[in-house]
Simulated scan of single mutants.
Amino acid sequence: LSTVLRLMNLKAKYGWSYKSFIELLELLKLMLPKDNTLPDRHYEAKKVLYPMGLQYKKIHACPNDCILYRKEFESLRKCPRCGLSRYKVKDDGRSSDEDVVDKGPPAKVLWYLPIIPRFKRLFANATDAMNLTWHADNRKCDGMLRHPVDSPQWKKIDGLFPHFGSEARNLRLGLASDGMNPFGNLSTNHSSWSVLLSIYNLSPWLCMKRKYVILCMMIAGPKQSGNDIDVYL
């Protein structure tokens, strides 16, 4: 498990392609003793990591960001607000925006990465669990604004929800989002939006560390959501 996890971290860190990663797995498997259990396919490696809570969910979305196809909209084939098809319509010159397709690739997808399992893993680590209560146990209290906990907004939330504010381990999260082009310079018109969470319970020198910034959603393009991003939140 630890070997597969480190290999997957290296793949993500250095942007290895699937083909190069598979060839590396095959080479390592040949170098190890005959009865080793190292996976030799990327899919098999992901299956090893699945119990750790690193799974994701694909949720179909309206191309105009009207709705997510979940809960009461899960069985629909077109958007009840704008009427666009849930699935991609072939552009053969005869199709129109009013055409509806019953199956096929979705017109737009939200990739949701569950956050609760990752929070549980943080608290399962003794060092991280101690860091998550830094704002209550170790910060300097001198009346200066040194941390978000010193802000009027933090204190107002504690006043409105005293049961929540009385427990130092309850997480205070900051949300940020920005567009990115996953295709580099190959397609300047494509814009996918990542949604990130930062944990304000941590000390100022830790809360923006890569380890503690959590990717919770990726909103597929090709166009930006703009103010309609509220649908995904």
Rank of each mutant, 00 (worst) to 15 (best):
K88A: 13
E26L: 08
P51T: 05
D150G: 10
L10D: 11
K58Y: 03
K58I: 06
R94D: 07
H163G: 00
K88S: 12
N201R: 06
L196V: 10
L38N: 03
G165L: 06
R81K: 15
L84N: 06
E98V: 14
A220L: 10
R146M: 05
G165K: 05
H42A: 10
V48C: 07
L202A: 03
I116G: 00
W111Q: 08
L28F: 11
R70C: 07
N9T: 13
I229G: 02
P162N: 09
N138G: 00
D150H: 11
K46D: 08
N9I: 13
G184L: 07
F73N: 15
P39R: 01
R86D: 03
K34H: 14
H135I: 04
I157G: 01
L132S: 03
R77V: 14
D102V: 11
L76G: 01
W205V: 04
M218I: 15
D228V: 05
D230S: 13
S191N: 15
G221I: 02
M8L: 15
D35K: 15
C216E: 05
M208V: 00
R210I: 00
V231H: 02
C216A: 12
R77Q: 15
K211W: 02
G184W: 06
F73A: 05
K58F: 03
Y18N: 14
I59W: 01
P148H: 07
P105G: 04
E26F: 01
T133L: 05
D102Q: 13
N189W: 08
L5V: 09
K34D: 15
W154S: 06
P114A: 04
S187K: 12
Y43N: 06
A45F: 04
H190I: 07
